[in-house]
Design a protein around this nucleic acid. Structure first.
Length: 642
RNA sequence: GCUGCUGUAGCUCAGUGGUAGAGCGCGUCCUUGGUAAGGACGAGGUCAUGGGUUCAACCCCCAUCAGCAGCUCCA
């Protein structure tokens, strides 16, 4: 890509998307953010399905009160795929009781209880809720009253009555047969704050018909097969070990191969983009993080210090949670001229963050990770152009891999929050610059307050994982604070010393998260250039082992990751084994091939399609696939010679 | 960190208060084969770890570690 002449016409690109474009793969449950997204784009209150789900949540609450009469009710809304209800319970409900609860729900449905709405004045509502010993509802009613509501809405069906906005079905009998199922029970804080009590949330699935429910369950089971944790094990990508520690993946040979290839790609892309590579240590004295502000603003996410105390030294060392301070020190290692700017320092930097124990999940959230990191030092007037180039970099990767399940977030500070450093006017300026860049490029984005880094606003690429979680896949941050803190400067054209701006950017995020994303996105089927094994050779029988071994030796000489299946098995079995492991290219060789100097080439992405090709030609095609990083895992991508 | 569930062979899982099983995988042999599982035999487990109850614990209880789902967090 020619950076100087790049037109940066991302507005016309299909690459960048908004939250609304997310199609939403099968999901069992939704996180808070997804609920926000779902609310903005999914069911409206008038939808029958909305009312069905909402009504089922009341029906479930009625059933729960039958087996736990002392249960205190929280909230019970409809959500994507179904509904939930939160309860404060004396005794926990376990999923072993779901069958019983479902039976009670079916009975309530069979009783065809009418849903009836009543409006009560606030004072009467509070009395009613106190009578029913529903302290959580009382608290909420008081809130509503403070907000100026004069009367509150209640819904009653049979013996169950709940303060609720509605709307609901006409009666419980409207619920189609077998259209719901209780799904899971999980903890949830009252009103979403961990300072509050933990309630028991029971999730249910509900769809317009039994068939829709079945379809959903099947889709969800299928999705589980694509889970990167499952694929990672199947394909020998990574593993975890209790003795090593939570959130600390061990990368197996196949996984390391994929990482190496990704790094090679990023190295080339960044070399062309004018980046220089640097390398920095994993541990660092505390002073650096006092200077950067990490110890006052990021300490909770850092591993505790290693204290060194002997006659020479009395010092705390920390595992680095970010690479930026080190890169700033490299910038500061000698005087800088405006001629050097933008100065782009890049590193596959390994950082360690102390994630709370419940947060780790496969490769998605880890405690040790490798960032595709870079810090760009530049003059004020260069900022906009450089942010555009950085976004262009994202486009290279996202288009190449056809990544689509994400949305772009402009992460701003919450103005009244204590957690940010720097002056307010500089914040406003930086936020304005970043917003303008996105607007000028016509990239769709969503602004969110309180999501900024402590030193500046961010452009985050928020990805959606297979099972519905959302994580930041890539980030670009504009930093006007650290140069000040580190005393960074450059000599400008006029001989004056000036502060550089800093852009932090990681288009591939971390290797861990990016690969988890890629594994799920590609369903483990890597293109030839990226695959742990480029080609596996399957001799039809032992008689052709010699021929097969010669081909393999030649491919290995050519630096192909070529394997030979020497197993004493029938060809059927060997094909099954290779296909199960999603190996992109199989060369089947037997007598006919040995005579003709050919291979029977079977490609994973094209099903059973295969071709007899002279070995020399096959090798040439493989070279083309590798050198051009052809995405031959996508069936519509043309492969030369095929 | 919080709530709930789970931890048995490399993997997926069954099982019982009297020290364990299947399928796949792995090894050896037979078979010498042309595109999604040929056959036989065999090796593999301190039943996550540490306590406790019991004549006896893989099973019951407690704690710890780890995983899963969710909540919260992700500055």
């Amino acid at each position: 890509m020619n950076w100087e002449n790049s037109t940066l016409d991302m507005g016309r690109s299909e690459t960048f998307r908004t939250a609304r474009d997310l199609s939403g793969p099968a999901r069992g449950t939704t996180s808070g953010r997804h609920e926000r997204m779902a609310k903005s784009s999914k069911l409206s209150k008038d939808d029958w399905l909305y009312r069905l789900r909402h009504s089922l949540s009341h029906i479930m609450a009625q059933a729960v009160l039958e087996i736990r009469p002392g249960a205190r009710l929280g909230f019970g809304p409809p959500v994507e795929n179904g509904f939930y209800y939160d309860f404060l319970l004396d005794e926990p409900v376990s999923d072993a009781e779901f069958l019983d609860l479902e039976q009670r729900m079916r009975r309530i449905i069979a009783e065809n209880q009418k849903f009836e709405r009543a409006l009560r004045p606030v004072a009467e509502s509070l009395c009613f809720l106190e009578d029913r010993r529903q302290p959580l509802k009382v608290e909420y009613a008081q809130d509503l009253a403070r907000r100026g509501e004069s009367s509150l809405s209640f819904y009653r069906n049979g013996p169950f009555e709940d303060m609720c906005e509605g709307p609901h079905l006409e009666s419980t009998g409207e619920v189609p047969e077998n259209c719901f199922r209780l799904d899971s029970v999980a903890g949830a804080y009252w009103r979403g704050s961990e300072k509050n009590a933990m309630l028991s949330r029971i999730y249910g699935l509900a769809f317009p018909s039994a068939a829709d429910l079945q379809r959903f369950l099947e889709r969800r089971d299928l999705a589980k097969e694509r889970d990167h944790r499952k694929l990672g094990q199947l394909l020998g990508i990574f593993t975890f070990d209790d003795d090593v520690g939570r959130g600390l993946p061990l990368w197996l040979p196949n996984g390391t191969t994929v990482r190496d290839e990704l790094e090679a790609l990023a190295r080339e892309v960044e070399f062309r983009g004018g980046y220089q590579r640097v390398t920095t240590p994993h541990i660092t004295k505390g002073g650096l993080y006092r200077l950067s502000g990490h110890l006052s603003h990021y300490k909770d996410s850092m591993f505790p210090p290693m204290h060194i105390s002997d006659e020479d030294e009395d010092e705390d060392y920390y595992l680095k949670p970010m690479n930026c301070p080190h890169h700033h020190k490299i910038y500061a290692s000698r005087p800088r001229s405006y001629r050097e700017l933008p100065l782009r320092l890049a590193e596959f930097g390994v950082v360690y963050r102390y994630e709370r124990s419940g947060q780790c999940a496969g490769l998605l959230r880890v405690r040790g990770m490798c960032q595709n990191d870079s810090h760009i030092y530049l003059a004020n007037e260069q900022v906009k152009e450089e942010v555009k180039r950085v976004l262009e970099l994202h486009r290279v990767y996202y288009e190449m891999f056809r990544l689509k399940d994400y949305w772009i977030r402009l992460s701003l500070r919450a103005p009244d929050s204590e957690k940010y450093v720097g002056q307010a006017d500089l914040w406003e300026l930086s936020e304005k610059v970043v917003r303008e860049v996105l607007q000028e490029l016509a990239i769709p984005f969503v602004e969110e307050l309180g999501e900024a880094a402590f030193y500046g606003p961010k452009i985050d690429f928020q990805m959606q994982t297979l099972l519905g979680r959302e994580e930041t896949a890539a980030t670009t941050q504009l930093d006007f604070v650290m140069a000040e803190r580190f005393g960074l400067e450059f000599t400008d054209r006029d001989g004056q010393k000036r502060r550089p701006y800093i852009i932090h950017r990681a288009p591939l995020g971390t290797h861990e998260r990016f690969l988890s994303y890629l594994l799920e996105h590609l369903n483990g089927a890597f293109p030839t250039w990226l695959a742990p094994v480029h080609v596996r050779i399957l001799p039809v029988s032992e008689k052709f082992l010699g021929y097969a071994a010669r081909l393999r030796a030649e491919l290995v000489q050519d630096l192909f990751r070529a394997e030979l299946d020497e197993g004493n098995e029938r060809l059927n079995k060997k094909v099954l084994e290779a296909v199960t492991h999603k190996i992109p290219n199989l060369f089947v060789v037997g007598g006919r091939d040995q005579e003709g100097g050919t291979v029977s080439w079977r490609r994973y992405c094209r099903g059973n399609e295969q071709k007899v090709v002279r070995f020399e030609d096959a090798r040439g095609i493989l070279r083309t696939l590798r050198a051009g990083r052809v995405m031959d895992n996508f069936p519509d991508v043309a492969v030369p010679g095929w």
